[in-house]
Amino acid sequence: MGTQVQAAETPVISRLIEGDVDRYLAAIADATAIFREAVDVYLQTGPDGGCWRQARHISEHMRTLDDMQQTLETSVRPNSVFGDLVLGMLDPLTGVNRLLKDMKRQVTGFAIESGFSGPGRSVPAYLVADVQELTNEVCAAVDALVESYRSAVLCGGQASSGNAERGVSWYENQADRLSMQLLKKIFADESLDLKLQLLLAQLVEEIDRVADQAEGIDQKLRASRGAGLPTLVARDSH
């Protein structure tokens, strides 16, 4: 049974925490959008394109996310009912922070790291659509994770309204399947030298790893939900 803070206690604080958590989750979804855009720019224009813009954008966005998390943590008194509640709610997001940092590292890598951005590192045209599809599935896995967390924390553990079959694991499986297909195509292409094949394989595996991380966090979240993840249920209205 989760720790539910009912409206009768201090509904106004419940609503404020709920609003801040909601904003925070929306900002995480925005980070996913930047990641998708960064991969797209890299695929379309290569390392000489505008990748640095996305790198700067995601760095600024990560600072915003840190600020939002700090705001949530400092808005409540330590060792109070709401202080314990918020810290309990934020705990599963530690893994999400690591995932976002990995996204940031990759996006920055498109712009400045030699593994992605050296001369001639562009992805062959016939692979672009597949890498985009892989990125879409990976981002969908992260979005599904955010929705899963949102439904667990803000809706009192009720299942999200989306198709239950299309959960984090479903998207992660899709990403695994696509990355495997991509790796087969890369290593079957004899026109690519081995060094480029390895770099392309690294790119695919790096993108796919984000979905693996999302699945790992989702499994922990489900386990903690079973053990009583703090939830926030404010039932009154203005």
Partner: peptide
């Protein structure tokens, strides 16, 4: 662990931020 203290703390924190 007075609930009203949470509201006072939140107000003061919000004004400070």
């Amino acid at each position: 662990r007075h609930a009203r203290l949470d509201e006072i703390h939140w107000t003061m924190s919000a004004l400070d931020r």
